[in-house]
Amino acid sequence: MKPPPFHYHDPRCLDDALGLLAEKENAKLLAGGQSLMPMLNMRFVFPDDVIDLNRIPELTSIGEDEGLVRIGAMTRQCALERSEVIRDHCPIIIEALRYVGHIQTRNRGTIGGSLCHLDPSAELPTVAQGLDATIHIQSKRGARTLAMEDFPAFYMTPAIEPDEIVTAVEFAPWPKDHGFAFVEFARRLGDFAIVGVAVLLVVSADGSISRASITLGGVGQAPIRCTAAEEIVTGSNDSDAAMREAAETCRKIDAMDDLHVSGVYRQKLAVALTLRALRKAYDRAIGESVA
């Protein structure tokens, strides 16, 4: 179980990386390596060229500017876990990261790598969708952005061209007192979730939910934003009933069947976990302590 031969490149700046990527026919970008390296070792992929992004400092940053949080694509998951900016502005990322692999993989794995790998059950794409993230993309031809919603093209395939690199992910933080929860069910801690749910809520003084974001991972081929559920909880004066009703809508979502897990089971998990996440986020928003 050894990687096949390839040409290795470790450009020192983004521009060089873009140049290489434009030039090479069958190249793979190496970010944290926690998905590409196993695939190389198992010889599931045979790139002629591997372009390592780990020596490009400009891709590694966490910053807040003009009300937007911007994370460089090569920012490692462990850096996010320990970032005060993230803790202050989007704590749901930290809550989700507890479920992302293990210490050793979070020390290498990057946010950009996780988003581009786009495993349907992965936590970070689900959270990015919940946060309405904007994906910054660059190529020799120029720069562009994509809403996270439009980022997945197909199963495990982002909507980027072969010469493009994801450089950063950016989003507007929710208000300070928002409620949040990331809840998932996996076979063991650190495994990809069977279903994961990211919920963000703003609760008004009267207890009604004024703004909601509900996203399911693992149910469809890419994260699913549950707009119907969001509409049900938003503005309702009986939040508990609304949360139940909202969760129940997940039963109708078209869920994947695969060799190991049925769509019906995914739907059931989606219903149960969405309700748990909603309640947890709600309790946090109103200042209740949560387990």
Binding site: P3, Y8, D10, L30, G33, Q34, M37, P38, N41, D52, N54, C78, I103, Q104, T105, N107, R108
Partner: peptide, 19 residues
Amino acid sequence: CTVLVDGQAVRSCLMLAVQ
């Protein structure tokens, strides 16, 4: 295969030596 690279625990089967 976990080792420390610059003080951080990583899986050394998922890193190239050149890295």
